Structure formats: structure tokens, C-alpha cells
Computed example of a mutant assay.
Amino acid sequence: MTKETLGQLIIGSEETMYRIAKSLLYNDADCADAIQEAIVKAFAKLHTLKDDSYAKTWLIRIVMNECYAIMRKEKKIISLQDYQMNEQETESKDYSDLYEAIFHLPEQIKLCVTLYYMEGYSVKEVAALLDTTESAVKNRLAKARGKLKEALAD
């Protein structure tokens, strides 16, 4: 794969990368940072891509890894004042009830929902991206539907 082809893939995958990052990170600035770092790493490690047909999957996996890296970095204690300010900002944003319910799902379930329902990946592809079995993905999706139904019924 050439750098030009990778650039076209990145441009075509902007929304996908954002949705994946947003499903893991709540802050838009963190999402932007994760995507930017993923793009830089993708260009730097382009030679490690063995099969061009898996380029999009490879790119999404890099985005997910960058999100995890940001999450690890931000495991710190925040003050009560910062937390309250963050809550006020969150309340003022116009997030749908469904988005809020998805955001509060456990991380692995949230990723399955995002990849399967929002990005249109098959169960087999989601299992490959998350390095798990197809039955685990199906179980997570079933659990997500139950939790979302419960959360949205309130």
C-alpha cells in the first residue's frame, strides 16, 4: 500500500475513526488526539501492513490502541470541583439518550455495539478486531441490547 492510498483510506474512514474513539473516550479533544496519533503511527508503520485488504481493520485497531493509551494516561484523580464542572458541561451538551446509554455500557460491550451497529461490521469482523470469539461478540451484543432496553425504559 502506498502512502497516497493510505491517505485516501484515512479520509474515507474519518467518521468511523471518530465513532470508535468517541465510544471509548468521552472528551472530543481526547478523541481528536487519539485519531491524530493513530494517523501518525499508521504512516510510520505502513510497512508492517501485510495485506492491503485488511488496511481499514488495521487502521481501526491502531485508533483503538491509541484510545486505550489515552485512557491509561488519564487514570488520575480529579478534584470534586473539576468533576462538577465536567458534569455541568455534559448536561449542557445535546447528547441523545441512546448515546448516553451506550456510553455507560462496559467498554467491551460498547465497542461491540459501535462496531456492529454503527459501523456495520459483521460478527466475524468484530471478533477479529477485538481478538475474541464470535460467540463472545454475540453474547456481548445480546447483553448490550438488554442493558440498553433497561436504560432507555426509565
Rank of each mutant, 00 (worst) to 15 (best):
G146Q: 02
P106I: 06
E15C: 01
L59G: 15
M118P: 03
Y121V: 02
F43C: 03
D28G: 02
I102C: 08
E119R: 00
A29P: 02
I102L: 01
Y95G: 00
R145S: 07
I20L: 04
A29E: 10
D82T: 14
D51F: 13
A144G: 02
I78A: 15
S122P: 00
H47P: 03
F103H: 12
C67V: 04
T90H: 09
L105C: 12
H104Y: 15
S135M: 07
A38L: 03
T48K: 14
R72C: 03
S96I: 01
E74T: 14
I11A: 15
E119Y: 05
V137E: 00
N139W: 09
L111P: 05
K41G: 08
Y95S: 08
K50V: 12
N65A: 15
K147W: 14
E4D: 12
Q84R: 02
M118F: 02
E91C: 10
E107M: 01
R61Y: 07
Y68C: 12
A55P: 00
Q84F: 07
A136N: 08
N27W: 02
Q81F: 08
S135W: 01
Y68L: 13
Q108K: 02
L115E: 04
E107F: 07
I35C: 15
A136D: 04
S122T: 08
A32D: 13
K75V: 00
C31P: 00
V126W: 01
A142M: 07
A151S: 11
Y99M: 09
L6Y: 08
L80R: 11
S23Q: 01
C31G: 04
I39F: 12
V63H: 05
L111K: 05
L130Q: 11
I78W: 15
Y54V: 09
K93R: 10
L98D: 05
S79V: 03
F43G: 05
T5L: 15
L24G: 04
K73I: 13
T2Y: 12
W58D: 09
K93P: 01
N86D: 14
I77T: 14
A101R: 07
S135R: 03
T16K: 09
M118R: 03
D30V: 05
Y68N: 13
Y68G: 13
M1D: 09
I11S: 13
F103W: 09
D82C: 13
L24P: 01
I10R: 13
T90I: 01
Y116L: 05
V113F: 05
L49D: 04
A142E: 03
H104D: 15
K41W: 10
G146M: 03
E89K: 07
E119N: 06
D97T: 04
R145T: 01
S96T: 10
P106L: 07
L141F: 09
H47W: 02
T90F: 13
Y26K: 08
A144Y: 01
D154M: 13
L98C: 04
E150D: 14
D51G: 05
L105A: 12
S79A: 13
S122H: 04
F103V: 12
T114G: 05
M1H: 12
L59K: 07
D51E: 09
E74V: 09
V126H: 04
L9R: 12
N65K: 12
D33S: 09
D82E: 06
L129F: 11
T48L: 15
I20T: 02
L46P: 07
E91Q: 11
I102Y: 04
V113Q: 03
K149R: 11
G7D: 06
Y95C: 06
K75E: 10
K110F: 06
R145V: 08
E87W: 01
E37P: 11
